[in-house]
Design a protein around this nucleic acid. Structure first.
Lengths: 164, 164
DNA sequence: AAATTATGCTTTAGGTATAAAGCATCTTGA
DNA sequence: TCAAGATGCTTTATACCTAAAGCATAATTT
């Protein structure tokens, strides 16, 4: 039996009511993101025997028919190089991804989707969209759009603060 | 040298422009959350030799002077029981948390903050707030408040969709 | 009250993440 | 040209997280 909880936890640290708006907003956003992400992971495993990181790699490659280097994937997905190595190897073993040395630089490896990988990703992407639309189904389109717009400000702010 | 990236990645899957608003909003929210969370983890390690999960436990206990059972912590923090066991043991070894058997049910263990733990958490909390306020410093108060309000709708929607 | 089931927690095995070191290749500059 | 450093990736050690099994204690059923 499962040992992990997946119900509404309230905000982490418990429905925080005090403190600056930035902190309250962060805790609420974190809470929402964690719940959604956990459900997505669960469904990927249960229904497709795959993982969110593998899906992320497939999605990145699907957008670039010409392929991507391991480093490109690492940067785009915000995971370590070593991690990309492992995920791509799995996808390669499953026949979803092909890897070949770059012509211009023999250190680089370029990963591309195989036809099988493209088909597989298409199926996953449909399910992924469906799950998200279902979870956010009660949020009015207008609110989603406002969130999307305001999150752009957040994105800009954290980008401006550099990596440190 | 570090091997992990921490700069603006654009949205995951690369600045998605198409698809339903719910999916676009989710990808943007996920991206923002991941960047902020990674930075927080990094700073906790670098500046305080601690981790976000340990901070989360301390924060939960700080709000409840009477203490919490391991199960309560697991539910509130959305992590497995086994994980709580490990984190609490670490905090116990550091002298920040005390654990004793519950009177009413000898299976239960109740964790409480020690005075040392309370002091330690206070220091961490100040830094934590400071980091968040800094990262979100360019987001106007008004936008933060709007995000906070609209995220309540998201929270409600995902809660309504149950755990499945 | 005994047997069964449920609950609270820990342990274990396995997957996944990072950081740091290592290897190969490329680039730079004297 | 060739030494020194930078770059792309992999490997290794370590940490953390989950699921599932296991153990002890409570609650329930008969």
């Amino acid at each position: 039996m499962s040992d992990t909880h997946d119900h509404d936890p309230g905000e982490k640290y418990g429905g925080q009511l005090h403190g600056p708006t930035s902190v309250r907003m962060w805790l609420r956003m974190l809470s929402c993101t964690m719940v959604i992400e956990k459900r997505l992971r669960r469904r990927f495993i249960d229904q497709y025997k795959t993982t969110l990181p593998r899906f992320d790699v497939l999605a990145a490659l699907d957008r670039r028919a010409e392929g991507m280097t391991m480093g490109d994937l690492s940067q785009m997905l915000l995971v370590s190089n070593g991690n990309v190595t492992a995920i791509v190897r799995q996808l390669q073993e499953s026949g979803f991804v092909a890897v070949e040395a770059a012509e211009h630089d023999r250190r680089s490896l370029i990963a591309t989707l195989t036809p099988k990988g493209t088909t597989h990703f298409a199926e996953l992407a449909v399910a992924h969209h469906h799950w998200i639309e279902e979870m956010l189904g009660d949020v009015p389109e207008e609110v989603l759009q406002q969130l999307f717009d305001r999150l752009a400000t957040v994105k800009t702010s954290i980008a401006a603060k550099g990596t440190q």
